[in-house]
Structures are given as C-alpha cells and as structure tokens.
C-alpha cells in the first residue's frame, strides 16, 4: 500500500524541500518508486535539487490544476539526472516557475478532490511506493487543501519562538482534518543542544512523535539547494538519520 507523505511547516525556509528531496532519494536508493509533488508555487526549489531545468518542464503541477494536462504529463522522471544510478525511480511533479500570478494554485475546497484524484492517478499509473508532497508553508488555504490527502503529515520546525507558536496552531488545525498520522522533525538544531532533551520537550509540548532531530550543518547550507545531501555525503551521520526517518515514515 502506497503512502502519501506531506512535508509541511509553519514557516518558509525551515528545510521542507531539502528534507523531501533527501527522503525521496534515500527511498529510491532502497529500490522504491517515489514521486514528489511540489505544490509550493511561492518559492519552488525541488526541481533545482534534482537538476531539472525549467526548459525541460513541459508541464507543471499548476498546469494540471488548470486542466491543461494529465498529472502523468507533469511527472518528470529525474532518476537519470542524479550522479548515481538508483535501484528505484524518482518522479517529480514540479511547481510552476514562470509567473506566480497566472499560476493556478490549490485554493478552494473543491481542489482537494482534484488533488486527491491526481495523487491516486499518479500512484496507480507509476506504480508508486511513496508519494511525497512539498507544501506551501503555514495555514493558508493552499496549504490546508493539500493536507486533506495526506496519510502522514511531517511537520518540520526549527528552534525559534516563531516556530513554536506557529507549529502549535498548525498542529491543532491539522488534527481537525483527520490526518491519520502526524509527526515532527526538528531541523537546524544547533549542535550545542542536547538532542535527546529537544526530542522529549517537543514530544511533551505537541503531544506528538518526533521522528528526527537534525542538526544545523554548514555542509547542508553550502549545497544551497543545488544538490542532495544524502547523495553527496552517503556516510554522514545526518544521512543515517534521514535514512532512519525515511524508513520510519514509510513503514
């Protein structure tokens, strides 16, 4: 049974795209067939991570919403773009990069059904083991519509006051949309902290499982969304952490 995993956060720039891309890569390297839908039209980055050029994106997710193409037409097989051959396959449904104004976004409740149909079609036609969705952050309508299709929602947060409050609100709202499983990933934790303590405190605060506490690493920052960390540093402890998280999320 395929899983739809939504990678969400309250705030921009906490590492949604980075984590989504790494999870997809790690699952595919274990032999799974994975797709990522990038619904974050505001600052799409996923295509960059997989080296997909804008000129090669015939159709985007927004074109599917407009009814200009089938969802399969917007799914690009990016497995060959990677510097390493994988046992599995990675498909990417990128977000529109051209004009944000004209791009159609998920914005009314009816779009939930459209997205759900798209996801089901993609899962069936590509024989997916996992479908990852990179969202628009926060509790905007675009973000909330996407949440309706999630089997698992991964909430990413950093250690900032803004994240604590916003994550609290988002979690409460998400719980009213009957998401079967909601988990947390703490990202960019300063290494000076005691990570076990962060995990316990988070679990207590949000009454929710913490799948991983990931450190802030200059190496990740240096990649600047141009390459996939787990591919570049296969033996790094962060890669091990991400692999564990990937297994946890798909089990």
């Amino acid at each position: 049974m395929s899983k739809t995993i939504l990678i969400h956060s309250f705030r921009h720039g906490v590492g949604r795209s980075t984590i989504a891309a790494n999870l997809a890569f790690l699952l595919a390297s274990e032999g799974q067939r994975v797709a990522i839908i990038d619904t974050s039209t505001k600052a799409p980055a996923t295509h960059l991570l997989f080296g997909l050029k804008e000129d090669d994106m015939a159709y985007s997710f927004n074109d599917y919403l407009l009814g200009q193409c089938d969802i399969q037409q917007a799914a690009h097989n990016v497995t060959g773009h990677l510097k390493e051959s994988l046992k599995g396959q990675i498909f990417l449904v990128p977000a529109n990069t051209k004009s944000e104004k004209t791009a159609r976004q998920l914005n009314d409740a009816q779009d939930a059904l459209l997205l759900n149909t798209g996801c089901q079609t993609l899962i069936d036609s590509l024989g997916l083991d996992a479908l990852l969705i990179d969202t628009q952050p926060g509790v905007s309508e675009t973000a909330l519509v996407a949440i309706t299709v999630a089997d698992t929602l991964v909430m990413i947060l950093g250690l900032s006051k803004q994240d604590y409050q916003g994550t609290g609100v988002t979690m409460d709202v998400v719980r009213q949309l009957d998401v079967p499983r909601v988990v947390l990933i703490v990202n960019e934790a300063p290494t000076a902290f005691d990570f076990d303590e962060i995990e316990t405190k988070m679990e207590q605060t949000y009454n929710c499982e913490v799948v991983a506490v990931l450190p802030h690493l200059d190496e990740v920052m240096a990649l600047a969304n141009k390459d996939i960390f787990a591919l570049r540093y296969p033996n790094h402890s962060l890669t091990t952490q991400l692999r564990k998280a990937a297994i946890n999320l798909t089990s």
Partner: peptide
C-alpha cells in the same frame, strides 16, 4: 490563549468547514 484564538479563527471559516467535509469524504 493566542494559539486557541488563531485556531478558532481558521476552523470556523466556511472554507474550513467545507474542506473538513471534503477531507472526511476523501479519507
């Protein structure tokens, strides 16, 4: 207090009520 207020503001909208129904349907 603020958290409670913010959550209420969102879930009480027509949009959210509609979405909630759709979500149940989908699931």
């Amino acid at each position: 207090v603020k958290r409670q207020r913010q959550v209420t503001e969102i879930v009480e909208t027509d949009f959210f009520q509609d979405l909630q129904a759709k979500a149940r349907n989908i699931r």
